[in-house]
Design a binder for these strands. Structure first.
Lengths: 183, 183
DNA sequence: ACCTGAACACCGTTCAAGT
DNA sequence: ACCTGAACACCGTTCAAGT
Protein backbone atom coordinates (compact mmCIF):
# COMPACT_ATOMS: atom_id res chain seq x y z
CA UNK A 1 0.00 0.00 0.00
CA UNK A 2 2.85 2.36 0.89
CA UNK A 3 4.41 1.69 -2.51
CA UNK A 4 1.07 2.06 -4.28
CA UNK A 5 0.53 5.42 -2.64
CA UNK A 6 4.03 6.61 -3.55
CA UNK A 7 3.67 5.55 -7.17
CA UNK A 8 0.36 7.38 -7.57
CA UNK A 9 1.59 10.44 -5.68
CA UNK A 10 4.77 10.71 -7.72
CA UNK A 11 2.84 10.89 -10.97
CA UNK A 12 0.52 13.53 -9.55
CA UNK A 13 3.32 15.72 -8.19
CA UNK A 14 5.34 15.50 -11.42
CA UNK A 15 2.24 16.62 -13.32
CA UNK A 16 0.63 19.12 -10.94
CA UNK A 17 3.11 19.94 -8.20
CA UNK A 18 3.12 19.64 -4.44
CA UNK A 19 0.25 22.02 -3.78
CA UNK A 20 -2.07 20.16 -6.12
CA UNK A 21 -1.47 16.81 -4.41
CA UNK A 22 -4.67 15.91 -2.56
CA UNK A 23 -4.88 13.21 0.10
CA UNK A 24 -8.56 12.77 -0.77
CA UNK A 25 -7.92 12.18 -4.47
CA UNK A 26 -4.89 10.05 -3.72
CA UNK A 27 -6.90 7.87 -1.32
CA UNK A 28 -9.66 7.47 -3.89
CA UNK A 29 -7.14 6.43 -6.54
CA UNK A 30 -5.82 3.58 -4.44
CA UNK A 31 -9.16 2.65 -2.85
CA UNK A 32 -8.85 3.78 0.78
CA UNK A 33 -10.03 6.82 2.73
CA UNK A 34 -8.02 10.01 3.10
CA UNK A 35 -7.62 9.54 6.86
CA UNK A 36 -5.96 6.20 6.15
CA UNK A 37 -3.24 7.80 4.06
CA UNK A 38 -2.02 9.47 7.24
CA UNK A 39 -1.34 6.05 8.69
CA UNK A 40 1.35 5.49 6.04
CA UNK A 41 2.56 9.09 5.82
CA UNK A 42 1.81 11.28 8.85
CA UNK A 43 1.75 14.50 6.82
CA UNK A 44 1.76 15.63 3.22
CA UNK A 45 5.31 16.86 3.78
CA UNK A 46 6.42 13.41 4.93
CA UNK A 47 4.96 11.88 1.78
CA UNK A 48 6.63 14.46 -0.45
CA UNK A 49 9.97 14.00 1.32
CA UNK A 50 9.71 10.23 0.84
CA UNK A 51 8.91 10.78 -2.84
CA UNK A 52 11.91 13.04 -3.32
CA UNK A 53 14.27 10.68 -1.49
CA UNK A 54 13.14 7.73 -3.60
CA UNK A 55 13.35 9.86 -6.72
CA UNK A 56 16.97 10.72 -5.92
CA UNK A 57 17.84 7.11 -5.05
CA UNK A 58 16.40 5.82 -8.32
CA UNK A 59 18.20 8.55 -10.22
CA UNK A 60 21.53 7.86 -8.58
CA UNK A 61 21.24 4.15 -9.34
CA UNK A 62 20.56 4.85 -13.00
CA UNK A 63 23.31 7.44 -13.33
CA UNK A 64 25.91 5.27 -11.60
CA UNK A 65 25.13 2.54 -14.06
CA UNK A 66 25.74 4.93 -16.94
CA UNK A 67 29.15 5.90 -15.55
CA UNK A 68 30.07 2.24 -15.16
CA UNK A 69 29.18 1.54 -18.76
CA UNK A 70 30.95 4.36 -20.55
CA UNK A 71 33.49 7.12 -20.15
CA UNK A 72 32.30 8.97 -23.21
CA UNK A 73 31.04 12.36 -21.97
CA UNK A 74 28.80 12.98 -24.98
CA UNK A 75 27.15 9.59 -24.66
CA UNK A 76 26.61 10.11 -20.91
CA UNK A 77 25.11 13.56 -21.39
CA UNK A 78 22.86 12.27 -24.17
CA UNK A 79 21.43 9.73 -21.76
CA UNK A 80 21.13 12.39 -19.07
CA UNK A 81 19.27 14.83 -21.28
CA UNK A 82 16.99 12.01 -22.36
CA UNK A 83 15.80 11.51 -18.75
CA UNK A 84 14.48 15.08 -18.63
CA UNK A 85 13.07 14.84 -22.12
CA UNK A 86 11.12 11.69 -21.33
CA UNK A 87 9.37 13.44 -18.43
CA UNK A 88 7.98 15.91 -20.96
CA UNK A 89 6.86 13.21 -23.39
CA UNK A 90 5.15 11.47 -20.45
CA UNK A 91 2.11 13.78 -20.35
CA UNK A 92 4.18 16.97 -20.09
CA UNK A 93 5.51 16.04 -16.67
CA UNK A 94 8.48 17.65 -14.93
CA UNK A 95 11.41 16.63 -12.81
CA UNK A 96 9.94 16.01 -9.36
CA UNK A 97 12.46 18.29 -7.67
CA UNK A 98 12.29 20.93 -10.39
CA UNK A 99 8.56 21.41 -10.00
CA UNK A 100 8.84 21.42 -6.22
CA UNK A 101 11.62 24.03 -6.37
CA UNK A 102 9.06 26.41 -7.82
CA UNK A 103 6.82 25.75 -4.82
CA UNK A 104 9.65 26.15 -2.33
CA UNK A 105 7.86 28.49 0.06
CA UNK A 106 5.06 25.99 0.55
CA UNK A 107 7.37 23.07 1.34
CA UNK A 108 8.14 21.81 4.83
CA UNK A 109 11.87 21.73 5.73
CA UNK A 110 12.20 17.96 5.26
CA UNK A 111 11.17 18.32 1.62
CA UNK A 112 13.55 21.21 1.01
CA UNK A 113 16.53 19.22 2.21
CA UNK A 114 15.60 16.37 -0.15
CA UNK A 115 15.58 18.83 -3.03
CA UNK A 116 19.06 19.98 -2.01
CA UNK A 117 20.21 16.35 -1.93
CA UNK A 118 18.80 15.71 -5.40
CA UNK A 119 20.54 18.76 -6.83
CA UNK A 120 23.83 17.86 -5.16
CA UNK A 121 23.89 14.29 -6.49
CA UNK A 122 23.04 15.45 -10.00
CA UNK A 123 25.71 18.12 -9.99
CA UNK A 124 28.31 15.67 -8.69
CA UNK A 125 27.46 13.20 -11.42
CA UNK A 126 27.72 15.82 -14.16
CA UNK A 127 31.05 16.98 -12.71
CA UNK A 128 32.34 13.40 -12.96
CA UNK A 129 31.29 13.25 -16.59
CA UNK A 130 33.12 16.51 -17.24
CA UNK A 131 36.26 14.88 -15.86
CA UNK A 132 36.19 12.54 -18.87
CA UNK A 133 36.86 15.46 -21.17
CA UNK A 134 40.44 16.07 -22.21
CA UNK A 135 40.68 19.76 -21.29
CA UNK A 136 42.46 20.66 -18.08
CA UNK A 137 40.02 22.16 -15.62
CA UNK A 138 40.01 22.57 -11.86
CA UNK A 139 37.52 20.72 -9.68
CA UNK A 140 35.83 24.03 -8.87
CA UNK A 141 35.50 24.92 -12.55
CA UNK A 142 33.91 21.54 -13.23
CA UNK A 143 31.45 21.96 -10.36
CA UNK A 144 30.49 25.45 -11.54
CA UNK A 145 29.96 24.19 -15.06
CA UNK A 146 28.06 21.16 -13.76
CA UNK A 147 25.60 23.31 -11.86
CA UNK A 148 25.19 25.51 -14.93
CA UNK A 149 24.41 22.44 -17.06
CA UNK A 150 21.93 21.19 -14.48
CA UNK A 151 20.25 24.60 -14.28
CA UNK A 152 20.13 24.95 -18.05
CA UNK A 153 18.48 21.55 -18.53
CA UNK A 154 15.97 22.16 -15.73
CA UNK A 155 15.18 25.51 -17.33
CA UNK A 156 14.70 24.04 -20.79
CA UNK A 157 12.28 21.54 -19.26
CA UNK A 158 10.40 24.27 -17.39
CA UNK A 159 10.03 26.57 -20.39
CA UNK A 160 9.13 23.73 -22.77
CA UNK A 161 6.49 22.59 -20.31
CA UNK A 162 5.12 26.11 -19.97
CA UNK A 163 4.73 26.34 -23.73
CA UNK A 164 3.62 22.71 -24.03
CA UNK A 165 6.13 22.44 -26.85
CA UNK A 166 8.90 19.87 -26.64
CA UNK A 167 10.77 21.49 -29.53
CA UNK A 168 11.64 24.28 -27.09
CA UNK A 169 13.51 21.68 -25.03
CA UNK A 170 15.25 20.18 -28.06
CA UNK A 171 16.29 23.51 -29.55
CA UNK A 172 17.58 24.74 -26.21
CA UNK A 173 19.68 21.64 -25.61
CA UNK A 174 21.01 21.83 -29.15
CA UNK A 175 22.03 25.44 -28.58
CA UNK A 176 23.73 24.49 -25.29
CA UNK A 177 25.75 21.92 -27.22
CA UNK A 178 26.59 24.29 -30.04
CA UNK A 179 27.85 26.84 -27.52
CA UNK A 180 29.97 24.15 -25.88
CA UNK A 181 28.19 24.29 -22.53
CA UNK A 182 27.24 20.59 -22.68
CA UNK A 183 29.77 17.99 -23.91
CA UNK B 1 -8.61 48.83 -5.51
CA UNK B 2 -8.00 46.83 -8.66
CA UNK B 3 -4.41 48.04 -8.70
CA UNK B 4 -3.99 47.38 -4.98
CA UNK B 5 -5.24 43.82 -5.44
CA UNK B 6 -2.91 43.22 -8.39
CA UNK B 7 0.11 44.55 -6.56
CA UNK B 8 -0.51 42.33 -3.54
CA UNK B 9 -1.36 39.29 -5.69
CA UNK B 10 1.77 39.66 -7.83
CA UNK B 11 4.03 39.52 -4.81
CA UNK B 12 2.22 36.45 -3.50
CA UNK B 13 2.35 34.55 -6.79
CA UNK B 14 6.03 35.37 -7.36
CA UNK B 15 6.75 34.01 -3.88
CA UNK B 16 4.31 31.09 -3.58
CA UNK B 17 2.86 30.37 -6.99
CA UNK B 18 -0.63 30.34 -8.45
CA UNK B 19 -1.98 27.52 -6.29
CA UNK B 20 -0.98 29.26 -3.09
CA UNK B 21 -2.78 32.48 -3.99
CA UNK B 22 -5.81 32.74 -1.70
CA UNK B 23 -8.70 35.12 -2.28
CA UNK B 24 -9.36 35.12 1.45
CA UNK B 25 -5.80 36.13 2.37
CA UNK B 26 -5.64 38.60 -0.50
CA UNK B 27 -8.89 40.23 0.62
CA UNK B 28 -7.64 40.47 4.17
CA UNK B 29 -4.40 42.10 3.00
CA UNK B 30 -6.24 44.92 1.24
CA UNK B 31 -9.06 45.22 3.76
CA UNK B 32 -12.11 43.80 1.97
CA UNK B 33 -13.95 40.46 2.00
CA UNK B 34 -13.07 37.58 -0.29
CA UNK B 35 -16.42 37.74 -2.08
CA UNK B 36 -15.63 41.33 -3.00
CA UNK B 37 -12.46 40.33 -4.84
CA UNK B 38 -14.68 38.57 -7.35
CA UNK B 39 -16.22 41.90 -8.21
CA UNK B 40 -12.87 43.06 -9.59
CA UNK B 41 -11.70 39.71 -10.96
CA UNK B 42 -14.45 37.17 -11.67
CA UNK B 43 -12.17 34.16 -11.10
CA UNK B 44 -8.72 33.39 -9.81
CA UNK B 45 -7.73 32.61 -13.41
CA UNK B 46 -8.82 36.07 -14.55
CA UNK B 47 -6.70 37.66 -11.84
CA UNK B 48 -3.67 35.55 -12.73
CA UNK B 49 -4.09 36.31 -16.44
CA UNK B 50 -4.28 40.04 -15.67
CA UNK B 51 -1.13 39.72 -13.55
CA UNK B 52 0.76 37.95 -16.31
CA UNK B 53 -0.36 40.44 -18.96
CA UNK B 54 0.74 43.37 -16.84
CA UNK B 55 4.00 41.61 -16.02
CA UNK B 56 4.72 41.18 -19.72
CA UNK B 57 3.76 44.78 -20.52
CA UNK B 58 6.04 46.16 -17.80
CA UNK B 59 8.84 43.88 -18.95
CA UNK B 60 8.50 44.88 -22.59
CA UNK B 61 8.57 48.56 -21.68
CA UNK B 62 11.77 48.14 -19.69
CA UNK B 63 13.48 45.98 -22.32
CA UNK B 64 12.56 48.32 -25.17
CA UNK B 65 14.13 51.13 -23.24
CA UNK B 66 17.34 49.12 -22.89
CA UNK B 67 17.48 48.51 -26.64
CA UNK B 68 16.97 52.20 -27.31
CA UNK B 69 19.85 53.09 -25.02
CA UNK B 70 22.55 50.72 -26.19
CA UNK B 71 23.51 48.33 -28.93
CA UNK B 72 26.12 46.61 -26.82
CA UNK B 73 24.97 42.99 -26.45
CA UNK B 74 26.98 42.34 -23.28
CA UNK B 75 25.59 45.44 -21.58
CA UNK B 76 22.02 44.49 -22.60
CA UNK B 77 22.38 40.93 -21.36
CA UNK B 78 23.90 42.15 -18.09
CA UNK B 79 20.78 44.24 -17.48
CA UNK B 80 18.56 41.32 -18.52
CA UNK B 81 20.24 38.87 -16.17
CA UNK B 82 19.97 41.44 -13.40
CA UNK B 83 16.16 41.42 -13.69
CA UNK B 84 16.04 37.71 -12.85
CA UNK B 85 18.67 38.08 -10.17
CA UNK B 86 16.77 40.83 -8.40
CA UNK B 87 13.69 38.59 -8.11
CA UNK B 88 15.83 36.20 -6.07
CA UNK B 89 17.26 38.93 -3.86
CA UNK B 90 13.68 40.14 -3.29
CA UNK B 91 12.74 37.43 -0.75
CA UNK B 92 13.75 34.55 -3.03
CA UNK B 93 10.99 35.33 -5.51
CA UNK B 94 10.75 33.99 -9.05
CA UNK B 95 9.77 35.22 -12.47
CA UNK B 96 5.96 35.30 -12.40
CA UNK B 97 5.69 33.25 -15.57
CA UNK B 98 8.46 30.86 -14.62
CA UNK B 99 6.77 29.85 -11.40
CA UNK B 100 3.42 29.52 -13.13
CA UNK B 101 4.97 27.35 -15.87
CA UNK B 102 5.66 24.78 -13.19
CA UNK B 103 1.97 24.83 -12.24
CA UNK B 104 0.82 24.62 -15.85
CA UNK B 105 -1.73 21.85 -15.37
CA UNK B 106 -3.58 23.87 -12.77
CA UNK B 107 -3.83 27.00 -14.90
CA UNK B 108 -6.91 28.04 -16.86
CA UNK B 109 -6.34 28.56 -20.61
CA UNK B 110 -6.32 32.35 -20.40
CA UNK B 111 -3.31 32.19 -18.06
CA UNK B 112 -1.45 29.73 -20.27
CA UNK B 113 -1.70 32.00 -23.28
CA UNK B 114 -0.29 34.89 -21.26
CA UNK B 115 2.70 32.72 -20.34
CA UNK B 116 3.24 31.99 -24.02
CA UNK B 117 3.09 35.71 -24.77
CA UNK B 118 5.65 36.47 -22.05
CA UNK B 119 8.05 33.84 -23.36
CA UNK B 120 7.64 35.03 -26.95
CA UNK B 121 8.39 38.67 -26.14
CA UNK B 122 11.44 37.73 -24.09
CA UNK B 123 12.81 35.48 -26.80
CA UNK B 124 12.25 38.13 -29.46
CA UNK B 125 14.11 40.70 -27.39
CA UNK B 126 17.07 38.40 -26.79
CA UNK B 127 17.16 37.58 -30.52
CA UNK B 128 17.38 41.31 -31.27
CA UNK B 129 20.29 41.65 -28.87
CA UNK B 130 22.03 38.74 -30.59
CA UNK B 131 21.73 40.66 -33.87
CA UNK B 132 24.11 43.24 -32.40
CA UNK B 133 26.87 40.67 -32.39
CA UNK B 134 29.29 40.67 -35.29
CA UNK B 135 29.04 36.98 -36.22
CA UNK B 136 26.89 36.02 -39.20
CA UNK B 137 23.92 33.99 -38.08
CA UNK B 138 20.53 33.25 -39.59
CA UNK B 139 17.34 34.53 -37.97
CA UNK B 140 16.43 30.96 -37.05
CA UNK B 141 19.80 30.37 -35.37
CA UNK B 142 19.35 33.54 -33.35
CA UNK B 143 15.85 32.51 -32.26
CA UNK B 144 17.06 29.06 -31.21
CA UNK B 145 19.90 30.54 -29.25
CA UNK B 146 17.58 33.15 -27.74
CA UNK B 147 15.21 30.50 -26.45
CA UNK B 148 18.15 28.58 -25.05
CA UNK B 149 19.39 31.69 -23.23
CA UNK B 150 15.91 32.34 -21.85
CA UNK B 151 15.57 28.71 -20.71
CA UNK B 152 19.03 28.70 -19.15
CA UNK B 153 18.36 31.87 -17.14
CA UNK B 154 14.94 30.66 -15.99
CA UNK B 155 16.57 27.39 -14.97
CA UNK B 156 19.35 29.10 -13.03
CA UNK B 157 16.69 31.09 -11.19
CA UNK B 158 14.63 27.96 -10.46
CA UNK B 159 17.56 25.92 -9.15
CA UNK B 160 19.01 28.81 -7.14
CA UNK B 161 15.59 29.36 -5.56
CA UNK B 162 15.25 25.66 -4.78
CA UNK B 163 18.58 25.73 -2.97
CA UNK B 164 17.94 29.19 -1.49
CA UNK B 165 21.43 30.07 -2.67
CA UNK B 166 21.93 32.96 -5.05
CA UNK B 167 25.49 31.89 -5.77
CA UNK B 168 23.98 29.03 -7.80
CA UNK B 169 22.45 31.66 -10.05
CA UNK B 170 25.66 33.66 -10.32
CA UNK B 171 27.89 30.66 -10.99
CA UNK B 172 25.48 29.31 -13.61
CA UNK B 173 25.29 32.62 -15.48
CA UNK B 174 29.07 32.94 -15.33
CA UNK B 175 29.45 29.46 -16.83
CA UNK B 176 26.93 30.33 -19.57
CA UNK B 177 29.08 33.33 -20.42
CA UNK B 178 32.32 31.37 -20.32
CA UNK B 179 30.86 28.79 -22.70
CA UNK B 180 29.78 31.59 -25.03
CA UNK B 181 26.06 30.90 -24.72
CA UNK B 182 25.34 34.42 -23.44
CA UNK B 183 27.05 37.46 -25.04
C1' DA C 1 -20.65 50.22 -8.92
C1' DC C 2 -18.96 48.07 -4.91
C1' DC C 3 -19.35 45.33 -0.93
C1' DT C 4 -21.14 41.60 2.24
C1' DG C 5 -22.72 37.09 4.83
C1' DA C 6 -24.02 32.68 4.00
C1' DA C 7 -23.83 28.59 1.61
C1' DC C 8 -21.59 24.97 -1.35
C1' DA C 9 -18.16 21.37 -2.21
C1' DC C 10 -13.43 21.21 -1.62
C1' DC C 11 -8.65 20.85 1.30
C1' DG C 12 -4.99 18.70 5.24
C1' DT C 13 -5.17 17.21 9.75
C1' DT C 14 -6.75 15.15 14.10
C1' DC C 15 -8.98 11.78 16.89
C1' DA C 16 -11.87 8.46 18.93
C1' DA C 17 -13.52 4.22 17.37
C1' DG C 18 -13.47 0.06 14.97
C1' DT C 19 -11.14 -4.63 12.96
C1' DA D 1 -1.20 -2.74 12.25
C1' DC D 2 -4.54 -0.74 9.33
C1' DC D 3 -8.70 1.55 8.38
C1' DT D 4 -12.79 4.65 9.14
C1' DG D 5 -16.39 8.64 9.98
C1' DA D 6 -16.73 12.87 11.94
C1' DA D 7 -15.05 17.16 13.07
C1' DC D 8 -11.99 21.31 12.50
C1' DA D 9 -10.41 25.42 10.00
C1' DC D 10 -9.21 26.18 5.44
C1' DC D 11 -10.16 26.93 -0.07
C1' DG D 12 -12.71 29.20 -4.73
C1' DT D 13 -17.10 30.24 -6.16
C1' DT D 14 -21.98 31.64 -6.20
C1' DC D 15 -25.83 34.41 -4.92
C1' DA D 16 -29.23 37.09 -2.76
C1' DA D 17 -29.01 41.19 -0.24
C1' DG D 18 -27.36 45.52 1.03
C1' DT D 19 -25.34 50.67 0.06
Amino acid sequence: MRETLMAAARLTVQAHGYNALSFRELAQEVGIKSASVHHHFPTKGALAAALARRYTEDGVAYLSDLLARSSNPTWCMDRYVEIFRSALTNDNRMCLCGIMSAELDDLPPEVRSEIDAFTATNVEWIAKVLEFSKSKTSAQERLDRAIAIFSAIEGAQLVARGGQDISIFDRSVQAYRRAGLIP
